[in-house]
Each structure stands twice: as structure tokens, then as C-alpha cells.
Deep mutational scan, measured.
Amino acid sequence: TETRTFTDEREARRFEQEARDNGKDVQVRESNGKFEVRVK
């Protein structure tokens, strides 16, 4: 599991989409204006 934290939602979404395109299981959590993207 890899976790990346972004402050920019667009960057978080781009990373999320890229991971999904690669067939990964992705979860995005938002807290305090930060976006935590977990990739399995």
C-alpha cells in the first residue's frame, strides 16, 4: 500500500486516475484540506 498526500485536489485526482488506469485499488480521503490517496 502506498499513500500520497496532496494539497492540490487536481493533483490528487490526476494521481488517482493514473492509478485506476493501471488497475490499482484506490481510496481518496480528504481531511483538513489535504487529500490522502491510498493505492493498493
Rank of each mutant, 00 (worst) to 15 (best):
T1Q: 10
T1P: 08
T1M: 11
T1G: 12
E2W: 13
E2L: 13
E2Q: 11
E2A: 07
E2D: 09
E2T: 11
E2K: 08
E2R: 08
E2C: 15
E2M: 13
T3W: 14
T3D: 04
T3M: 10
T3G: 05
T3N: 06
T3I: 14
T3H: 07
T3P: 05
T3L: 12
T3R: 06
T3V: 14
R4I: 10
R4A: 05
R4M: 09
R4K: 08
R4L: 09
R4V: 09
R4E: 02
R4G: 02
T5W: 15
T5M: 10
T5V: 14
T5R: 06
T5Y: 15
T5Q: 07
T5P: 02
T5N: 05
F6P: 00
F6D: 00
F6S: 00
F6G: 01
F6Y: 05
F6A: 00
F6M: 00
F6I: 00
F6N: 00
F6T: 00
F6R: 00
F6Q: 00
T7P: 03
T7M: 09
T7K: 07
T7Q: 08
T7Y: 12
T7R: 07
T7E: 10
T7C: 14
T7D: 12
T7A: 09
T7S: 11
D8P: 00
D8G: 03
D8Y: 04
D8N: 10
D8Q: 04
D8M: 03
D8A: 04
E9R: 06
E9K: 06
E9S: 06
E9I: 10
E9M: 07
E9Q: 07
E9P: 08
E9A: 08
E9W: 10
E9L: 08
E9D: 03
R10A: 13
R10Q: 11
R10D: 11
R10H: 10
R10T: 11
R10I: 11
R10N: 11
R10L: 11
R10M: 11
R10E: 11
R10K: 12
R10Y: 11
E11I: 04
E11G: 03
E11H: 05
E11M: 07
E11Q: 07
E11F: 04
E11K: 05
E11A: 09
E11Y: 04
A12L: 04
A12R: 02
A12S: 02
A12Q: 01
A12T: 01
A12P: 00
A12N: 00
A12W: 03
R13E: 03
R13I: 06
R13M: 08
R13H: 06
R13K: 08
R13S: 05
R13T: 04
R13V: 05
R13Q: 07
R13L: 08
R13G: 03
R13W: 06
R13N: 04
R14W: 06
R14G: 05
R14L: 12
R14C: 10
R14P: 01
R14I: 12
R14S: 08
R14V: 10
R14F: 07
F15W: 10
F15A: 05
F15N: 01
F15C: 06
F15E: 02
F15P: 00
F15G: 01
F15M: 04
F15K: 01
F15Y: 12
F15H: 03
E16P: 00
E16T: 06
E16M: 14
E16Y: 10
E16L: 08
E16A: 15
E16I: 15
E16N: 01
E16K: 02
E16G: 07
E16Q: 07
E16D: 02
Q17E: 07
Q17C: 12
Q17N: 07
Q17G: 05
Q17V: 05
Q17H: 07
Q17F: 06
Q17D: 05
Q17K: 12
E18D: 08
E18N: 08
E18V: 08
E18K: 10
E18A: 11
E18Q: 11
A19V: 05
A19R: 04
A19N: 08
A19Y: 04
A19H: 06
A19W: 06
A19K: 05
A19T: 04
A19S: 08
A19I: 04
R20T: 05
R20L: 10
R20W: 06
R20G: 03
R20N: 04
R20E: 03
D21M: 13
D21H: 10
D21Q: 13
D21W: 10
D21V: 10
D21K: 14
D21L: 13
N22K: 13
N22H: 11
N22G: 09
N22R: 13
N22P: 02
N22A: 15
N22D: 09
N22W: 09
N22T: 09
G23I: 02
G23K: 05
G23D: 04
G23V: 02
G23L: 04
G23M: 05
G23H: 07
G23E: 03
K24Q: 10
K24T: 04
K24M: 14
K24Y: 15
K24P: 01
K24R: 11
K24D: 06
K24H: 13
D25A: 09
D25V: 12
D25C: 14
D25S: 11
D25L: 12
D25Q: 12
D25P: 05
D25Y: 13
V26F: 02
V26M: 02
V26S: 03
V26Q: 01
V26R: 00
V26I: 04
V26H: 00
V26E: 00
V26W: 02
Q27K: 07
Q27N: 09
Q27P: 01
Q27Y: 14
Q27F: 14
Q27M: 12
Q27T: 13
Q27W: 14
Q27V: 13
Q27I: 13
Q27R: 08
Q27S: 13
V28K: 03
V28S: 04
V28H: 02
V28P: 01
V28A: 03
R29M: 12
R29E: 09
R29Q: 10
R29L: 14
R29H: 11
R29V: 14
R29W: 14
R29K: 11
E30D: 06
E30Q: 11
E30K: 11
E30L: 12
E30S: 09
E30H: 11
E30Y: 15
E30M: 14
E30I: 13
E30A: 10
S31W: 14
S31I: 15
S31T: 13
S31M: 14
S31A: 12
S31R: 13
S31H: 14
S31P: 02
S31N: 12
N32I: 02
N32M: 08
N32D: 11
N32K: 07
N32T: 03
N32R: 06
N32F: 07
N32L: 06
N32A: 07
N32P: 03
G33I: 00
G33C: 03
G33S: 03
G33R: 02
G33D: 04
G33L: 02
K34F: 14
K34N: 09
K34Y: 13
K34D: 04
K34M: 14
K34R: 12
K34T: 12
K34A: 09
K34V: 15
K34P: 01
F35T: 03
F35G: 01
F35P: 00
F35M: 03
F35I: 09
F35Y: 11
F35Q: 01
F35V: 04
F35H: 02
F35E: 01
F35D: 00
E36I: 15
E36S: 05
E36L: 11
E36M: 09
E36K: 04
E36G: 02
E36P: 01
E36D: 04
E36N: 04
E36A: 04
E36V: 13
E36Y: 14
V37C: 03
V37M: 02
V37Y: 02
V37T: 01
V37K: 01
V37G: 00
V37D: 01
V37L: 03
R38M: 14
R38L: 14
R38H: 12
R38G: 05
R38P: 02
R38N: 08
R38Q: 12
R38I: 15
R38Y: 14
R38C: 14
R38F: 14
R38E: 13
V39E: 03
V39G: 02
V39M: 06
V39S: 04
V39L: 06
V39A: 05
V39H: 02
V39Y: 06
K40H: 12
K40M: 14
K40E: 11
K40Q: 12
K40G: 12
K40V: 13
K40P: 05
K40N: 12
K40L: 14
K40T: 15
K40A: 12
K40R: 13
K40S: 15
